[in-house]
């Protein structure tokens, strides 16, 4: 394994190791709150904030956190940031806070965040931890907004609440219901997998079409 450059630290989470589209982490919020672009943005930004804050603290405190209790300490740090995000959202954008409901509190158990602490922030200096968290957080945000855009456009005929298709459009209501989340994620993953496989075949035509894991290792 080679050492990575700062740029790779940042970009990795956005594309090659996108938490939702590649690692399939954090699917619960990705399915549950992406019924509108606004909710997706709020959820993505809240998660971004929690991930960034937790990574900075974990990276700074890594010398003082005994490894026997590191998971408890990470969860404590994450839970603190989530509670802060919850209170701030409730005070600043109460309507969105109401729409996201319990899913803000559930950021605590988003395995993507704990995963970054254990795999990255606890091993690297704070600068790289910030880049990694920013990249992963941005990747999560982008994935959520893609899903939110598709679901709101089809399910409500609007984008960020602004009608797009005019009054004659009959919304596909199922797209903003829970099944629509699964449909959207399924089609996005299908498209992603197809694109990756095609790319892999172009590079190495005889390559075993095994998909995600091999590709991630290859990427590093």
């Amino acid at each position: 394994m080679k050492a990575t450059t700062p740029r790779q630290d940042l970009v990795r989470g956005i594309w090659k190791e996108n938490p939702v589209l590649i690692q399939l982490l954090g699917l619960c919020p990705a399915l549950a709150v992406t019924n509108s672009v606004e909710n997706s943005l709020a959820m993505g930004l809240a998660t971004f904030f929690v991930l960034l804050g937790s990574s900075v603290l974990v990276s700074l405190l890594k010398k003082w956190i005994p490894k026997e209790v590191r998971i408890s300490a990470y969860i404590l740090i994450i839970a603190t940031f989530v509670t802060i995000a919850d209170l701030v959202l409730n005070a600043v954008v109460p309507e969105i806070h109401k729409a996201l409901g319990a899913f803000i509190a559930l950021i605590v158990v988003n395995c993507m965040i704990l995963g970054r602490q254990e795999a990255f922030a606890s091993k690297y200096p704070v600068g790289r931890a910030v880049l990694d968290a920013a990249g992963t957080g941005a990747g999560f945000l982008i994935a959520l907004v893609i899903m939110g855009s598709v679901r709101e456009l089809l399910g409500n005929g609007s984008f960020l609440g602004v009608p797009v298709f005019g009054p004659d459009f009959e919304p596909w209501i199922i797209m903003i219901l829970p099944p629509g989340g699964f449909f959207t994620l399924g089609f996005i993953l299908l498209g992603f997998g197809w694109w990756k496989e095609r790319k892999a075949q172009q590079v190495r035509p005889r390559r075993w079409p095994h998909g995600v894991t091999t590709e991630v290792e290859e990427a590093a």
Binding site: Q8, K63, W64, K67, E68, A73, L76, K123
Partner: peptide, 26 residues
């Protein structure tokens, strides 16, 4: 996390942490 070197192992001071220190930290 392929970039992470597994050999760097765990975090913190090592295996001699006493219970008092663990509880105290938390």
């Amino acid at each position: 996390e392929p970039a992470g070197t597994a050999s760097s192992g765990g975090v913190g001071s090592g295996s001699d942490a006493s219970s008092v220190r663990l509880v105290g930290t938390l």
